[in-house]
Every structure is written in C-alpha cells, then in structure tokens.
Write a protein that binds this DNA or RNA. Sequence first.
DNA 1: GCACCAGGTACCTATTCGAAACCACGGTAG
DNA 2: CTACCGTGGTTTCGAATAGGTACCTGGTGC
Lengths: 125, 125
Amino acid sequence: MPAWNAYASACPTRMVLDRVADKWAVLVLGLLTDGPVRFNQLRRAIEGLSQKMLSQTLKSLERDGLVSRRAIATVPVTVEYSITPLGRTLAATVDALRVWAETHIQEVLTSQERYDAGRRDAVSV
Amino acid sequence: MPAWNAYASACPTRMVLDRVADKWAVLVLGLLTDGPVRFNQLRRAIEGLSQKMLSQTLKSLERDGLVSRRAIATVPVTVEYSITPLGRTLAATVDALRVWAETHIQEVLTSQERYDAGRRDAVSV
DNA sequence: GCACCAGGTACCTATTCGAAACCACGGTAG
DNA sequence: CTACCGTGGTTTCGAATAGGTACCTGGTGC
C-alpha cells in the first residue's frame, strides 16, 4: 500500500467509514458479537429495521467478510449469521469511537447549545 | 450517562458515527490538523468539494465545537478555520479507524472478490 | 468591467430508504 | 382442501433527502 490518497474514492479509510456510517451495519455487528443470530431474530431485535435493509446489510457485511452466513436445512430453512474474526476486530475499533462519543458527547452538546443560542460570545478560548 | 441506548437515534455513538460518515468533514478536519486554513484554501485543496458543502460542513463542525471560526477584518474579509482541542481528539480517534482500514483493507477486498466471483467455496475457514 | 474574498440561495437530479407486496416451502388449523 | 403462520428473502413503488450546478450579495484592487 503505497501512501493511500485520502481524497480518492477508493481510499480504504473512506470505504470503512462508509461501512461504519451504515446505521444498521454497526447494530447488526454489535448483536452478532454475542454469538450467532438468525435472520428474523435480528429483525425483531433491532427496532425499525425492515427486512429489506436487513438482507441488504447482511449481504454487504458478508461480502466484506465481516459476517458469515450459514444456511441450515431444517424444517423451515434456518439461516444463521455469525461475526467473523475480521468483523470482530472492526467491532473493537468502532468501540473506540463509541468510547470517544460517550466521553465527549457532553462537550459536543454544550457547544451545539451555545451555537444555537446565537453564540454571542463566540469561541471563548 | 445512564447506559446509552444504541437503538435510539439520540445515541451519542450514532451522532459521532454520522458526523464521521460525512466524507468532507473528515477531510476538512484532517487538513486543519496542520494549522489554520482559509475557506477558499480548503475549497481548492479538496478536489470535488463545492462551496455549498464546504460552508455547510464547516458550520456543523463549528456547531459541534470541533473547529473554530475566526473572521479577520482585512482587505477582503479573511476567515480562518482551525481545529479545536476537542476536534483534535476526535481526529486522533478516527485515525484508529484509518489504521484498521489500512491494515485490513486487503482482507476485505479479497473477500469481496471471492463473493463477487460467485463464492463457490463459500466461507473456507 | 473583471476577478477574488466568503459565503447564501434556488433549482434539479440521483440515490436512499421505508412500506408493502410477492415468492417458495412446509406445517397446522379449520 | 383451503387458509394461514413462520422461515428467508426479492421486487416494486413512492417519498424524502443529499448533494451538485449555478447564480446572488457586496466590498476592493486592477
């Protein structure tokens, strides 16, 4: 990897950022860290998630090698999704972002309030 | 902070993820880590960035307290944007994601190719 | 008049996403 | 026999939204 160009669309950081930007993807990944889960189990666990978005999300997660799909030929066909080791490392990294968020969210919210209030005192170094 | 609900839209992790998902925001933040930059300097530095998106991005970054705006009453009014300490900590955290991306992008790309090729051999642990 | 500074605003299009219908398959209830 | 449930999806439709293009301010120097 010879010095990635952050301004190119093929930049790996961009790709990962886009992936992580997917609301449902991180939630699914989070649920899978506790063990394999079936399709409709996921659908019921995540409020507001339509089956369309779920199958779409799972497909791209599988494509990226972050989750693995296993179809079991049972009575009604059971499909089990599990997180891969690679997916687990990404989840751990995203967790760093979660930690940042929970640590600094108050500063962000305070800044937003001041800004929305008309920021009379502006930056107040 | 009493146990954030990751499934709520007001979840801090979601907010931060959405912010980081903004293509231009991370690029702007990245450029600002080297020191203050003016509006049109940013615009020219980042290929494909329209002034609309730039001003929009800068406004929300300023609102979140990640960058600070300083208008200097010079010949034509100069506006200088700089990263705040808070913004710097976020940039550092995002950098962890960049590192993950550059470390594992090859695995992801390989997985994608196998998937797109029809994944005849499926998961091949 | 033209260009540059720092933006604001209107328009228009492309992608995105939710809702809902449809699919096959088998079990079960009537 | 027919109707309906649950399994795991795909497709279609329509509405919302993101984001690019282009044109506006308004002051200054050439």
